[in-house]
């Protein structure tokens, strides 16, 4: 564990808490992509199957359980409790275009050809693009509530912080590298660059998040 990893994980944790806070206080899931949240549940469930086979640490175990449980709870809030506030007609990204290629990539690139390892690989690839339905929705509506942009910024920061973490680990753990996670992580971070640009130049200057028409 290094400082980048810790800050990255805390940022991930914060992003979920911000999202829950947004839904509970506004009593609405307006502006949130159900598809992205459903993809995250898929990511966490397929990746964290190793809670049954490998014990890493209490920290690791608790975080895994939290990520699965909290994201499932968000799906419940969106589908049941605040269902009328969710508008499927603007959440139109075709997730099959993500699931198919990620499954194929996982079959091609993995560390061992076992169910657990291929699913892990699948989850890494899927996580890298899971935000696309959300960003697509943002692009479509052209604006977002400030709290939603804080959620996205925290999520993007989590991914960005994993990059210095890998660099640090490469030098401190005798050249150890995880090419699947690193490649997918770089792609994932790159997807946030446009968003970050608007977030830093507008939202943090106190303006509303609005995309140029």
């Amino acid at each position: 564990m290094n400082i980048f990893r810790l800050l990255g994980d805390l940022s991930h944790l914060a992003s979920i808490l911000i999202l829950l806070h947004k839904i509970q206080t506004t009593r609405s899931c307006r502006g949130i992509s159900f598809k992205t949240q459903a993809l995250y549940v898929t990511v966490f469930v397929t990746r964290y199957l190793d809670i049954f086979t490998d014990w890493v640490s209490l920290y690791n175990f608790t975080m895994k359980i939290f990520f699965i449980a909290s994201t499932c709870y968000i799906l419940y809030l969106m589908k049941m409790k605040y269902r009328p506030t969710h508008d499927p007609s603007i959440d139109t990204f075709r997730v099959e275009y993500l699931l198919g290629p990620c499954a194929l990539l996982a079959l091609l690139f993995h560390y061992r050809f076992t169910v657990l390892e291929v699913l892990w690989s699948f989850s890494i690839f899927l996580e890298s693009v899971a935000i696309l339905p959300q960003l697509f929705m943002l692009q479509r509506t052209g604006e977002a509530e400030t709290i939603t942009t804080h959620y996205l910024a925290a999520l993007g920061a989590y991914r960005a912080l994993y990059i210095p973490n890998w660099i640090y680990r490469y030098f401190t753990e005798s050249g150890q590298i995880d090419p699947i996670a690193v490649t997918a992580g770089l792609v994932q971070t790159a997807l946030y660059l446009d968003f970050f640009y608007v977030y830093f130049t507008k939202v943090l200057q106190g303006q509303k998040f609005e995309l140029p028409a």
């Binding site: 890493v56 690791n60 975080m63 895994k64 560390y111 892990w120 150890q176 995880d178 996670a181």
Partner: peptide, 10 residues
């Protein structure tokens, strides 16, 4: 030196 997944990462 090697390539493997880091099991402790989330």
């Amino acid at each position: 030196t090697g390539t493997e997944r880091s099991k402790d990462e989330l």
